[in-house]
């Protein structure tokens, strides 16, 4: 992936209204890999007793990060859409800590891209959640 394509992907994703709303920022992208961070925010709490972030916000982060990984793959023309995404929640994210998602597009065909992703907080040894998904590969006509 060229630096130019990485810049375009970064701008494209950071301009997405919902990603901006969740304060997501890309910290790494290229060659089918992406890393996106989402800082802790009280508005995204799912359990008011503990202050743990809602799983839905983690889903949004995983979906965005997985899509970014597909876009950054050398054999991906550009745009992509999620076909399906499965998320396993291993443990609650620690309140107050930034959640970091890393996604890898590990296989791509003319029509389908396959992705796996992991979400972590400060304790990187114990993932918060993992995801696997398939994405469309839009053909340039």
């Amino acid at each position: 992936m060229t630096a130019e394509k990485a810049r375009i992907a970064r701008e494209f994703i950071e301009k997405i209204p919902h990603c901006a709303a969740l304060n997501m920022s890309i910290t790494q992208i290229g060659e089918g890999m992406a890393q996106i961070e989402m800082p802790y925010d009280a508005r995204f709490i799912g359990d008011p007793d503990t202050g743990v972030i809602h799983g839905g916000a983690v889903s949004a982060l995983m979906d965005t990060c997985s899509g970014a990984a597909v876009m950054s793959h050398p054999r991906s023309p550009a745009a992509t859409a999620t076909i399906d995404l499965r998320i396993d929640y291993m443990r609650p994210a620690t309140p107050g800590q930034t959640i970091v998602a890393r996604a890898e597009c590990y296989h791509i065909t003319r029509s389908v891209a396959f992705v796996r992703a992991t979400a972590m907080d400060d304790d990187v040894e114990r993932p918060v959640a993992t995801a696997t998904g398939t994405f469309t590969v839009e053909q340039r006509s």
């Binding site: 209204p17 709303a21 799983g55």
Partner: peptide
């Protein structure tokens, strides 16, 4: 709401919003 948009070109709701909505 405009903040739910994921693809401004179409425009379409963000897949993460749809996922969160279904999870809730």
């Amino acid at each position: 709401d405009d903040k739910l948009i994921g693809n401004p070109a179409l425009p379409a709701i963000h897949g993460g919003v749809t996922a969160a909505f279904l999870e809730i």
